[in-house]
Design a protein around this nucleic acid. Structure first.
Length: 273
DNA sequence: ACTGTAACCTGCAGGC
DNA sequence: TGCCTGCAGGTTACAG
């Protein structure tokens, strides 16, 4: 599914399309994962933000002279995408849709249904445990090499598992975790790493993510931005998806194994524990 | 509290 | 061509 760069690309495109619009009515596919879509009915879109891989849409509505605030949360799962349509669709994979006051429809499409919709009080994320316990944004200036190293040291699991957990740093998924570890010469099954290597990993994460954002995200299968276009970052990957091919640094053959239930590619020569 | 694992879904590519 | 198997970018509930 979309990781931070893909969600950020979507957020950028979506923001000017729906900011200031009113949601007349929300509908959803009959599943608990999407049924809260209708709770956004009658609200007005203030802003479109992102936290990790979550899209956060701030909503407000006037009720009896008072302003009521809500937050519409969209998580795209593995195969989710959002788009704007002019007319109703019979696409069977649309899991939620919101009729806007300008006649357009905001669609959430998700083939595998790993995505999720929630409407909550602002900043009340207890129904979404991962978001509720999410770590700092990768580009947060308060995230330093020292604080990153301290968070990494608090757990004994594989470093790749820690990166995917969202609790130490927000927004990394399987692609960018493998890319960042490759770039910083760290084995995905390392458990403890020193201060210098933590700093090098943080630098690599920031580089990998900024390049991916600049390239509009990585497209393998389903990922599309609201304008229907694909990203270009798949041409910029050194590690993910290259098992059996030569390492771009040392020419050894990249290997693949399962780490933390996820397919993991790494270079056994230059990535060390 | 922490860690690891199964489960949730559907489509697609590859092997026979 | 058709069937079967394994695989895919994530999160959550639950067991130990």
């Amino acid at each position: 599914m979309p990781e931070l760069p893909e969600v950020e690309s979507i957020r950028c495109q979506l923001e000017p399309l729906i900011t200031g619009k009113t949601i007349i009515k929300g509908h959803s596919f009959p599943s608990k994962k999407f049924s809260q879509a209708k709770l956004a009915s009658g609200f007005h879109v203030q802003t479109v933000k992102r936290r990790g891989k979550y899209l956060l849409i701030n909503l407000d509505k006037e009720l009896g002279g008072k302003i009521k605030l809500k937050e519409l949360i969209i998580h795209l799962g593995m195969t989710g995408s959002v788009s704007i349509a002019k007319e109703k669709t019979d696409d069977p994979y649309v899991r939620a849709q919101w009729q806007l006051n300008d006649g357009q429809i905001l669609l959430f499409r998700d083939i595998r249904r790993f995505g999720r919709i929630a409407v909550v009080n602002p900043n009340d994320y207890k129904s979404l445990p991962t978001l509720n316990n999410i770590g700092p944004e990768p580009f947060d200036p308060n995230l330093t090499a020292a604080s990153f190293h301290k968070s990494l040291s608090s757990s004994r699991s594989h470093i790749k598992t820690k990166l995917l957990s969202q609790r130490i740093i927000a927004g990394l998924g399987n692609i960018y975790a493998d890319e960042s570890l490759w770039r910083s010469h760290i084995s995905p099954v390392a458990r403890r790493i020193g201060k210098d290597r933590s700093e090098s990993l943080l630098i690599s994460i920031r580089e990998v993510l900024s390049e991916a954002i600049k390239n509009g995200g990585t497209t393998f299968r389903d990922y599309r931005t609201p304008d229907g276009l694909t990203g270009k970052n798949q041409h910029n990957l050194d590690c993910y998806g290259r098992a059996g091919k030569a390492c771009n640094k040392c020419s050894s053959i990249l290997k693949n194994r399962i780490v933390g239930q996820r397919s993991t590619t790494w270079c056994p020569q230059c990535q060390i524990s």
